[in-house]
């Protein structure tokens, strides 16, 4: 059972050092490494735990979109190597020191698909049925629309629709 859970944000420069420190402190169980694309940059998160899972720590760091480079921790936790490659493939991150060969993704797909600036063209091309409003009709003819508020489909950022 997980008893103590700590979350900590570190700078990208201190990333490897802090992970190593945590490892030496006893957080030797590597749970997962993943990322989240935010406005400020790609946030990389790693979760480590004691071997008996009594304590865990989540370390996160934010890398701005211009650099997308972070030191690999695969030499500390070999299992993290696969996770880093996945994050590399899906978010365009480059983990320095790890073999960043593509795992699954088709080269032709272009941009890393988990990045928020990747436009899902199907959602732009397809007409959103939710945009419809009840129309005011007289004798079966449309004479007006009760709402002038423009609705946007959920999950479709405004800048996707401009193109």
């Amino acid at each position: 059972m997980m008893n103590v859970s700590v979350t900590e944000t570190v700078s990208p420069e201190k990333w490897r050092e802090r992970v190593l420190q945590a490892h030496d402190h006893g957080f030797v169980f590597f749970d997962f490494l993943t990322a989240i694309d935010r406005d400020s940059g790609v946030e990389v998160v790693v979760r480590l735990a004691f071997n008996d899972l009594s304590e865990s720590i989540s370390l996160s760091t934010s890398i701005n979109h211009a650099s997308l480079r972070l030191d690999s921790i695969a030499d500390i936790f070999p299992g993290a190597g696969w996770h880093e490659r996945e994050v590399g493939e899906m978010f365009g991150m480059n983990f320095v020191g790890n073999d960043m060969q593509q795992l699954l993704r088709h080269e032709a797909l272009g941009l890393p698909p988990m990045r928020k600036n990747v436009v899902l063209s199907a959602r732009v091309v397809a007409e959103w049925p939710g945009a419809a409003e009840p129309e005011i009709k007289q004798d079966g003819r449309k004479v007006g629309n009760p709402s002038r508020r423009r609705q946007r489909p959920p999950g479709v950022p405004e800048n996707w629709l401009q193109s």
């Binding site: 698909p113 899902l120 199907a122």
Partner: peptide, 13 residues
């Protein structure tokens, strides 16, 4: 039709 993955670029619709 692609189903739940109707908006996913690599999926055949």
């Amino acid at each position: 039709s692609g189903g739940p993955y109707w908006d996913s670029p690599p999926v055949t619709k």
